[in-house]
Amino acid sequence: MPSETPQAEVGPTGCPHRSGPHSAKGSLEKGSPEDKEAKEPLWIRPDAPSRCTWQLGRPASESPHHHTAPAKSPKILPDILKKIGDTPMVRINKIGKKFGLKCELLAKCEFFNAGGSVKDRISLRMIEDAERDGTLKPGDTIIEPTSGNTGIGLALAAAVRGYRCIIVMPEKMSSEKVDVLRALGAEIVRTPTNARFDSPESHVGVAWRLKNEIPNSHILDQYRNASNPLAHYDTTADEILQQCDGKLDMLVASVGTGGTITGIARKLKEKCPGCRIIGVDPEGSILAEPEELNQTEQTTYEVEGIGYDFIPTVLDRTVVDKWFKSNDEEAFTFARMLIAQEGLLCGGSAGSTVAVAVKAAQELQEGQRCVVILPDSVRNYMTKFLSDRWMLQKGFLKEEDLTEKKPWWWHLRVQELGLSAPLTVLPTITCGHTIEILREKGFDQAPVVDEAGVILGMVTLGNMLSSLLAGKVQPSDQVGKVIYKQFKQIRLTDTLGRLSHILEMDHFALVV
C-alpha cells in the first residue's frame, strides 16, 4: 500500500459497493488471473465517493441489488447463522422517566444476534452475496479491517462455511474481542490505534497488504460494500417497522461504517417519512454534520465500534436529520445504567446512543415513540467499562463513588512517597548505550525526554532486548525507535489509591 493515498477510480455505471474482489474501477472485475494482476490496485480507499443510485421515491424494481426479506425461524435451526436477525424490541421503562421523557422509549437489542452484535447481519450478508456472485469459493481466505464486531461476525460465518479468516484490528480494541476471535479460529493482526486510516500501518493498510500477498484472499470491505446497508434496509428496518406496527417518530443510532443508519433510515424514509433520524458520533470522530460539531482538541476516545477519521463510502449522511456528539463518560455511564436499571447487557456504544436519545427525544410528546439501536453486548468489555477499576483509572468514576473498604494508605498523596527525580535518556542515544546505562543503574525503564525536557515516551529494558533479539533494531539504532509513546501519567497530588489502580493494569506510571 502506498504512503500517498491515490484516488480510487470510478467506473461508468453500476453501484460502487459490489461485493467481491475490487477492480481499479471499484466494481467486480472478471477475466484471467493475468488481467486481474495487471488491473487490481494495491488498495482502494474506504472513503471513495459513493456511486449508489438510491433515491427517495425511486421504484424498488430499479435497484441493481439482490434483495432479501426477513424469514421466520424454524423450530430447529440448521446452523447458528440462522440465529442472525429477528432481534427483540424491548421497552426501556426507567431511564426515559428518569430523564423526563414523555414518549415511549424502545430498544432494538442487536446483541441477541448469534455473534453478539449488529455486525453479524452485514457479515453474513457480505459472505452470502460474495458466494452468490462467485467471488468467494471453498478454501478462500477472508481478510477484514475491523474494530472487532464485524470480525467476530465474519469469523463466526467463516467457521460454519469453512473459510480461512484473518482479522486486522487496532490495538485499542478489547482483549475479549481478541479472545472470541481466536476461539472462532480467526487469525488476528493488531495495528497502532493512532495510525491514520490511509497510513500503511493502519488496520485498513495492513489488511490490503495481506490481501496482495495471500492468494485467493478477499477483503469484503464493510466500508464500501453495498451488502452492509442492504442488510439493514432489507431486514433490520423491516423488523423495526413490523415490531412497531409502522408507528415510530424517531430513530437514534450510533454511527461507525454508517451501514446501520443508512440502511434503516432509507427504508424508514420510504415507509415512515415523518420519522426523524438521529445520528450519534463520538467526540474525536469526524462523521457528524455540520462540520463545526467535529471541532475539538480530542483525537482519541475509548468507546469502541463507532466514529472514524474518514467518511466511509457506505455512509449516506443525507438521510440523517440531526447529529449529536457523545463523550466517553456519558457513554459508559449510560451503558452501566442500562445494565443495572433495565437488565440490558449492552456495550458502550449503546450507552452513547441512549445518552443522546434522552436529549433528542425531549421534543417528542406522549403517545409518540423513539427507537434506539443497541449494537453489541457487554461480553466484549468485561475488563473495560464493566470494571470499576478501569473506570477509575480512566477518570470516568471517582473514588467516592465506590463504597468498598480501602487499605490505610489509600488516600495518601503520591508526594508522600518522597520520590527522587528519575533517570532520563535522550532519544538520540543508541539502544546499546541505553541498555548499558539501565543495567549500570539497576533500572528496568526510563523516560525519554528531548533537550527541552519534554517527555516523549518510555523505554524499557525488556522491550529493547526483545527488539534486538527479533532483529527489529540494532544496538547502533537510536533509542527513539523503541519508545512507548502511550503511558499513564500521575500527579504528586493524586492518591496512592489512584496509582494502585493504574499499576494493576500497566507496568509503570510516570509522575509529573
Rank of each mutant, 00 (worst) to 15 (best):
Q55P: 02
F99I: 15
Q7M: 04
S61C: 15
E104C: 11
P59Y: 04
E40T: 10
Y163V: 00
E201T: 11
K119A: 05
A8T: 11
F111E: 04
E62I: 13
F111G: 05
E110D: 06
E29D: 15
K30E: 11
K83C: 10
A38L: 13
L105S: 03
R18Y: 15
R209Y: 10
D179E: 11
P6T: 03
R182K: 12
R132L: 07
E131V: 10
T236A: 04
I142L: 09
R125N: 08
G100T: 04
I167S: 07
A159K: 06
N225S: 07
D35R: 09
E176F: 01
R91W: 01
D238E: 11
H232M: 03
L241Q: 05
T191I: 01
H203Y: 08
R276H: 12
G274M: 10
A155V: 06
E213V: 11
P200D: 09
K83P: 09
E239P: 05
S23C: 04
I142M: 09
L156V: 06
V10E: 08
Q242C: 14
P215M: 07
S3D: 03
S147M: 01
P170T: 04
K102Q: 15
A207Y: 00
P192C: 08
D35K: 05
T87K: 06
A48D: 14
S123N: 09
R190P: 05
E239N: 07
T260V: 07
V90S: 08
P192T: 08
W54I: 06
I127W: 05
G205E: 07
N212F: 09
G11Y: 14
G116Y: 07
I143N: 00
T257N: 02
K82L: 02
S63C: 14
A38W: 03
E213L: 07
E34W: 11
F197C: 05
C103Q: 05
L220Y: 03
D245Y: 08
E40S: 10
I122A: 04
L241H: 07
L154N: 01
A159W: 02
P49E: 09
A155C: 14
A195S: 03
I261N: 01
M89D: 05
N113E: 03
E9P: 14
D221V: 01
A237R: 01
M126S: 01
A195M: 05
H203N: 11
N216W: 03
P229S: 06
